[in-house]
Amino acid sequence: MVRKEELSGLEGELRALGAQVIRALRGAMRALSRRDLVAAQGVIDGDGGINARRAALEERCIRLLATQQPAASDLRLVTGVMHIATDLERAADHAKGLARITLFIGDEALIKPLVDLPRMARLAAGMLSGALRAFSARDVGAAREVARRDDEVDALHDRIHQELFALMVGRPEVIRQATYLMWASHAVERVADLATNICERVVFVATGAMEELNPVPGEG
């Protein structure tokens, strides 16, 4: 049996962590688009704070499990918060990866204007915030809808890869930066996957059912 304010406190802290991660992702993408090395360094420096916040949240969950023995939907909520916090921290790691890529590229001219990548990042950040809203509302329908947007992110990711491959053909001088941009695209694509994981967790917390929202055909 868990005191209600403990559970709402956990959720509040998760929302705050989520907001911080989304800010980091948007900041990292903006820094790459604008070639703002200072802002990129700021995202990297801020990652420690996100990690600490996630650790504190996990500790709070563990303390609650140990002292208040939640059951049923309370138990699913507490374990859900732990999982989602881990997914958020990993999303923040990808934001940090994006910021590092900005530093690697430095001030050299971009091999192509960045259009799809910022779009992808906006979609991924929107998925994260949508997943967190669905969690707060325990809205299974909204969680499914958010998870479906992953297809759009994947399509952009594929397109970016194809374009970069095409650029690399016969132009060895762009290979280095093209590879960095592929990593960047991969980082954003992973954030969208993590947002999908959060949506799956919303379904579990709300219903008790474990469900894969975007099953890969032929797997599982």
Binding site: M1, V2, P70, A71, A72, S73, D74
Partner: peptide, 8 residues
């Protein structure tokens, strides 16, 4: 009712 009992 079980849910309510378990969660206090």
């Amino acid at each position: 009712r079980t849910e309510d009992y378990l969660t206090g």
